[in-house]
Each structure stands twice: as C-alpha cells, then as structure tokens.
Design a protein around this nucleic acid. Structure first.
Lengths: 231, 231
DNA sequence: ATTTGATATATGATGCATCATAATCGGCGA
DNA sequence: TCGCCGATTATGATGCATCATATATCAAAT
C-alpha cells in the first residue's frame, strides 16, 4: 500500500446489476428483442448466470427508462411504440440533438473531427458488409459523440434513454438500409469543421427526419393492420 | 373475452418500491435532503417501515436519474450540482419546457386554463402564507401541467428527472422568494389563452432564467467558498 | 361441447441471511 | 506522543426462501 498506483483501469467498476443493465440495453438496441416480447426475470438470470437480484435491478431501471413496460404486475414486455409516442420522441430528439450539434460546433477540435470521420468510415464499411447490427451501434456512437464534444453529460443521459425506447425499431430499420444513412453525417462533419452551429443542427435534424420516415411508416402500417385485425 | 370492459381503474397496485421511490423523490423536491447528505439504505428502510429491498429498488432508480450518486461502492449521497451541471440542465429545460409551452398553446382548452389559474392562485396563497414547501410543489405541478396539456408524456418523464436532479436547490430558492415567482405564470396563461405558442415559450423561458438566477448565484458562491477553503 | 369454478403453476415482490470490502477503531512499536 | 498494522464494524451486493396473486389447467355440471 506504499503507493496507490493509477491502475490502468479500475476495471471492476461494474456491479452485476450494472452489467445486466448494459447487457439488456445492448440487446434492445441491437434488436435482439422484438416489440411485445415478454421477458422473465428468472429466465434472464439463468441466461446471464446470476441470481434474480441483479436482473431485477436492471429490469426495474429499464422500466424506469420506459425501455420495458410492466403491463400487469407479472408481465414485463418490450413496449410497442405507438406512432404518437414515436413522434413525440422524434420531436424531443430534434430539439435536443440539434442543441447538441449546435454546442458541439462551438467546442469541436480537429481530434473530434478525426474521430467522427473514423466512426463514419467504419459505419460505411459495416453497411457495405451488410452488418446492420454493427452499423446500428456505430450510428449510436456517432450521435452520442456529439454530446461528448458539446460537453453535455446530462443531455447524453437523456438521449440515451430516448434511444433505448426506440431501440428495437432502429435496429429493424438498419436491417434494410444502405449508404444513404451516412449522408447527413458527412454534412454534419463539414458544418462542424466550418464551426457553423446552425448548419450542424440542421444536418442532424434532417438525419433524424429522413431516417425516421421509414420507421414511422412501419409503425403506422402495423397500427393499421392491428386496427383491421381487431375489427 | 366477449369484451374488454374499461374497468374504472385498476387502482395502481403500487408496489412498496414505487412507494419508496415516490417518498424519496418528494423528499428531494421538498428539500428535506441537503446536497452532500449521505443516505443509508438500512436507515431509510427503518424510517419507511419496510425491508431494504424496496428502498434499494428506489435508490437504484434515483441513481439512474442522477438524483442520487454513488460516490464509492458504499457511499450514497445527494449530489452537489456544479454550476456547469446546473447550466446544462437549464439549457435543456429552456428547450424542452419551451417546446412544451408551444405545443400546449395548440392543444389548450378552457378547462386547462381554469386549472392553471387555480394552481397559480393557490401558489400565491402559499407564498403569502410563507409555505415554501407547498409553493415548490405547486410550481412543479404547474410546469408539469404544461406537458400534460401538450399531450407529451415522454417529455414529462424527461423533465421529471431533470427536476429531481435540481430538487434540493429549487426548494432552497423557494424558502426566500416572494410573489415575483408567479409573474411569468400569469404571462404564460395569457399566452395560452391567446393560443400564442411563441409567447408561451418565451414566458416559460423567462421564468426559468429569472428564477434560476439566484440559484446559479448560490451555486457559484458555494463553489468560490469551496475553492477558497481548499486553498 | 362449453362454461365455470377449483386447483396448480408461474412469477414478480418482499424480506432476510450472508458476503465482500471500505471505513473505523484499537493496540503496539518507535 | 505519533503513526502504522490488524481486528471490528458498517454497508451495499448478491443469493435465495417465501409470499401473493395472475394465469393456466382441468374437472364437473349443464
């Protein structure tokens, strides 16, 4: 104990509960759960190799995030986002991600630019390779990088929860998309290089609107079908 | 299955965990905890008359909300908001509450107006009676009423978490404020009557900025003192 | 065969025992 | 007297037993 050497990383930072939360969040973002899927704490615990306690912790936190819903006291499910829910989240994202882009333009450095370009290039490769799950992940990384550049950790946590709510839908969208989904990223990067906050905000908003269009279409189609089915 | 009768209300089967979350949230908003206070799960459980499990559930959710922080694995505290944190939250609120006010102007009814006027009148009475805690609560009710009028439940949940983070600070501010804190509420109500979304958004933004000024001052003073004390 | 009510099962909620470890305290040596 | 090492205590994390109750199963009556 003569010295508290700055170990490379206090790796174990995570409790099992945090780990379960991360794992389930990833699964939601990657689309490994479908809307309306039912989750059972005991089953998840068996899958994760822990007792129910950490899984329960994680599930409760995800319910708090609205990333899961407790339909009845014993029925935990992946929510089915209504078109109204989706539009509301989209409106909030247009505001907040626009804000992040604007602030990022004030704080951006060349190192940040390089990082964003690296992420975008890798995302293009993933898309060309047909690896939708990886592209989804990189897309998320790109969007959250803006909040990091802007130096807005609270905003980041807010947006993470909103993304979690849309998780399964985004993953679905990426399964059928091509290179057009990076178009606005290039425009955004250029705006950041120009330190043009308004243009950066506009770029991210266009990205949200255009890539959201097919998602909204899918939701509305599902709602029409459900309405028809229920008579 | 002949019909899914809309039962009057499944009278929220609140679990003990939900109840603990509510109780602790209220305590934070009402200022019954001070920044940097340490919380002990076992103590809280004793106070609430339950086992540790529901309290742990609640505390984990509050940590997720950033309304509490785990400074070290065994040290749960009410966070000390830095001025940077506060300004970031303020920026987000300016955007989101502005958005709520704007949308509320599109959806408002005379019943809504009456409700807002009722809340404001009661808040004035509370302020005149020197009941800061009740005024704080009514202020919160007023702000969240806007998201209800706007029909934006997701936005409401986002804002609730932001308010929770500022909880102890807001309560402190209300202990020393007078009737000026309702001024913008009247302007806002008039804007809603006029269905003028821009004016409504401007009113709520002025409210946030002006009532936030003394809070920010207090934070900065505390930071200066801490810096001086640490030499 | 369909409905209905009793029974069995499934599953989250709750309480509690135990564990690991950080914080605290006490004693020993200089 | 002061400071360091080991024992003690405090406290969140984890696992698990039990409970309450929603859901599913099944038998009996019509």
């Amino acid at each position: 104990m003569a010295e508290t050497a700055p170990r490379l990383a206090a790796l174990d930072r995570d409790t099992l509960g945090d780990s379960a939360y991360q794992t389930l969040s990833d699964a939601l973002i990657k689309g490994r759960f479908q809307p309306d899927d039912r989750l059972r704490i005991r089953d998840l615990a068996a899958e994760l190799g822990t007792s129910v306690t950490p899984v329960r912790d994680a599930v409760l936190r995800l319910v708090q995030d609205r990333a899961l819903v407790m339909r009845s006291p014993r029925d935990i499910r992946v929510p089915i986002l209504s078109s109204a829910d989706y539009l509301e989240i989209r409106t909030i994202r247009l505001n907040l991600e626009g804000l992040a882009a604007e602030k990022a333009a004030d704080a951006v450095t060349s190192a940040h630019i390089a990082e964003l370009e690296r992420i975008t290039a890798e995302k293009e490769r993933a898309l060309l390779a047909g690896d939708g799950a990886y592209a989804t992940e990189l897309n998320q990384v790109f969007h959250f990088a803006l909040t990091d550049i802007a130096g807005m950790p609270v905003l980041k946590s807010v947006l993470q929860r909103l993304w979690l709510q849309m998780g399964p839908l985004i993953a679905e969208m990426y399964r059928t998309s091509g290179l057009e989904v990076v178009e606005h990223h290039h425009i955004l990067i250029q705006a950041l290089i120009d330190r043009d906050g308004q243009a950066a905000a506009a770029a991210i908003r266009s990205d949200i609107l255009e890539r959201g269009a097919p998602i909204l279409e899918r939701i509305r189609r599902a709602e029409r079908e459900a309405a028809a089915g229920a008579g």
